[in-house]
Simulated scan of single mutants.
Amino acid sequence: MSASPASSSSPGPPSPSASSPSPTADSAVFTPPRLDGRTIAITGTTSGTGRVMASRCGMQGARIILLNRPSARADTALRELRGAGVDVVAVPCDLQSFDSVRAAARMLTEICPNGWTCCATTPA
């Protein structure tokens, strides 16, 4: 006697049922706790992970410092985050230039005399 392919004893993941909830983008995206009073400097915020981090952390009350190379995309990110109500500041920073990084560090020290948290992101 052979088992049919639809046998309930076959290995593998269970088939979805009509009663099981389907995942949504909101449930799959990390939402940090409230970050009121915190300042977070994030690199690479023109797209991808950096952009999501800036938005999510900003919406949770953090002051966000965008560290990007000067570009139209950086200007767009700044404008859109401000439009969403995020307290955001842009600091020009090209991570491929030590002079640019040093200048950004000096600006961060002036903007945030009490310190900040840095989140570095890299392109995919």
Rank of each mutant, 00 (worst) to 15 (best):
S22N: 10
A62T: 11
P13I: 08
G85R: 09
D36T: 14
C112A: 05
A6M: 06
I111A: 03
A74F: 01
R56I: 07
P92I: 03
I42P: 11
P70V: 10
D26E: 13
M107R: 15
Q96P: 06
S100M: 01
A54P: 08
D94Q: 02
R82N: 03
I40E: 10
I65V: 13
A74N: 02
T122H: 14
S20P: 03
M107S: 15
L35V: 07
C112E: 04
P5H: 11
D75H: 10
L35N: 10
S22K: 14
R79Q: 12
L81F: 04
G50S: 12
S97T: 05
T109M: 13
A54R: 05
N68L: 03
A3N: 12
G83E: 02
T24E: 10
G58F: 01
E110V: 12
P70S: 13
M59E: 12
A3Q: 13
A105D: 00
R102A: 08
V29G: 10
A84K: 11
M107H: 15
T46R: 09
Q60E: 13
G48R: 15
C93P: 04
I111V: 04
V101D: 03
I65K: 04
P21F: 09
G12H: 05
D36V: 11
T46P: 07
G61M: 05
P113V: 01
C93G: 03
P33V: 09
A6V: 08
R38T: 13
W116H: 10
T76H: 01
A104N: 01
Q60H: 13
G83M: 01
R63N: 01
A104Y: 00
T31N: 15
V101P: 05
R34H: 15
R63E: 00
C57V: 06
R82I: 00
A41K: 04
V52F: 05
A72Q: 01
A105C: 00
G44M: 13
G37T: 10
V89G: 02
A28S: 14
G61S: 04
S47T: 15
D87S: 11
W116Y: 12
D94E: 08
V88Y: 09
L108E: 01
S17K: 12
E80P: 02
V29F: 12
T45M: 12
P13R: 12
C112V: 01
R73N: 02
S19K: 13
S7P: 03
G115K: 02
R82H: 06
S97C: 08
P33T: 07
A18K: 13
C119W: 04
C118G: 12
N68E: 07
P16F: 03
P123H: 10
D75P: 04
D36Y: 09
R69L: 07
S9P: 11
I64C: 05
S20M: 06
W116D: 02
R34S: 15
S7F: 05
R38D: 09
M107K: 15
R69A: 05
A25L: 14
I65T: 06
F98V: 12
L81Q: 05
S10K: 06
F98T: 13
S2E: 13
D75C: 08
S20G: 03
S47K: 15
R106K: 08
S27Y: 06
F30Y: 14
D36Q: 14
A41R: 09
A3L: 14
P5T: 09
A90V: 01
P23E: 08
A103D: 11
R79L: 09
A104W: 00
R106P: 07
